[in-house]
């Protein structure tokens, strides 16, 4: 394959992965809601409902609260843009990417934080008590999750000798036994906790609640309407997808394409969708059986996962 062919193929892979995540993220959310509804004995709105919600929101008028500034209007853009960038650079379909070396795992984590920060600032900018409360809680959780996530990254990248996402995935592909190493398992647990915290799922946050005193994410976006809210909803769904996708491909990368040939890419897309579906459904099932924790118990959870991360790193040192 020629170099230009490689680049074209890689571009196609990136575009495909973008399209897949953007298109699939609301569906994933819909799937999770549906699974939950069924388990709770409800009929559910169907897997496509989030898309329908988005269409509805796009048709509605956008509103800006009195006294807010450009930060309020820019935040959804930044949130969505940062999520798109992550989607572009993450190895979901192929380990070969035109944007190889642009962003490693640290950068991806930091971009996720950037989105959180944008939303938190918007929440503060509304000048309401809810906005401030949500922002305060969101950044607290994010701040406490960040060490865990970085330690998990450390544990993963330590055995590979690089924090580049593609390198980690490729290394796991070539030596599958690594996945079962203590370091990797501990890191997986830590990472799972972080996904829950970052994506705002139970027991850290309840995405379905609008009960004022318990909500985190919803409190921040309370003042949004119309296309701004649509952007936020889409971005939130994408963040969940991206996080699950990263978890899936970092720990179980099988099925991912190592070239940019059309057929493996197509296969990879299917496998990726299935992996996400399974993970999402699993998460939904898990959520049915837990209740939301008090906010001040959340640090316990994160401290626990921090410990797992630290053990993972130490394990990779001592058992290397």
């Amino acid at each position: 394959m020629t170099a230009s062919g490689l680049t074209a193929g890689a571009l196609a892979a990136t575009a495909g992965q973008l399209a897949l995540v953007v298109g699939g993220a609301p569906l994933l959310v819909g799937l999770m809601r549906q699974v939950r509804a069924r388990l709770e004995g409800r009929a559910g709105a169907g897997v496509g409902q989030p898309w329908r919600d988005l269409r509805k929101l796009l048709g509605k008028e956008a509103i800006r609260p009195d006294g807010s500034s450009w930060v309020f209007t820019m935040a959804p853009l930044l949130l969505l843009a940062s999520t798109l960038v992550i989607t572009a650079v993450a190895p979901f379909l192929s380990t070969v990417s035109p944007v190889e070396g642009v962003a490693d795992l640290f950068a991806v984590v930091s971009l996720l934080m950037l989105g959180t920060v944008a939303l938190a600032l918007a929440g503060l900018d509304t000048g309401t008590a809810f906005g401030g409360m949500g922002a305060s809680r969101a950044v607290t959780v994010a701040a406490l999750a960040e060490p865990t996530i970085l330690l998990a990254v450390f544990a993963l990248s330590a055995r590979v000798g690089s924090s580049n996402l593609a390198d980690i995935v490729e290394s796991t592909l070539t030596t599958p036994a690594q996945v079962l190493s203590p370091a990797s398992l501990l890191a997986a647990v830590a990472f799972a906790v972080v996904i829950i915290a970052e994506a705002g799922r139970l027991p850290v946050d309840n995405p379905a609640t609008h009960l004022e005193l318990t909500m985190i994410h919803e409190a921040m976006v309370l003042e949004y309407a119309g296309r701004d809210l649509a952007m936020i909803e889409l971005a939130s769904a994408m963040r969940l997808t991206v996080l699950l996708g990263l978890g899936a491909n970092l720990f179980m990368p099988w099925g991912i394409a190592t070239t940019v040939a059309p057929l493996p890419l197509l296969g990879a897309a299917v496998v990726f969708a299935v992996k996400l579906g399974v993970l999402g459904a699993g998460l939904a099932v898990f959520e049915v059986f837990v209740a939301k924790w008090r906010l001040f118990r959340v640090p316990e959870l994160l401290a626990g996962s921090f410990l797992f991360g630290l053990l993972a790193v130490s394990a990779s040192f001592f058992l290397a």
């Binding site: 930091s110 934080m113 950044v139 607290t140 994010a142 701040a143 960040e146 970085l150 330690l151």
Partner: peptide, 13 residues
């Protein structure tokens, strides 16, 4: 690494 990470997180706050 943990310290740097926690510092980064709290710095963000």
């Amino acid at each position: 690494v943990g310290v740097v990470a926690l510092t980064a997180g709290l710095g963000m706050v």
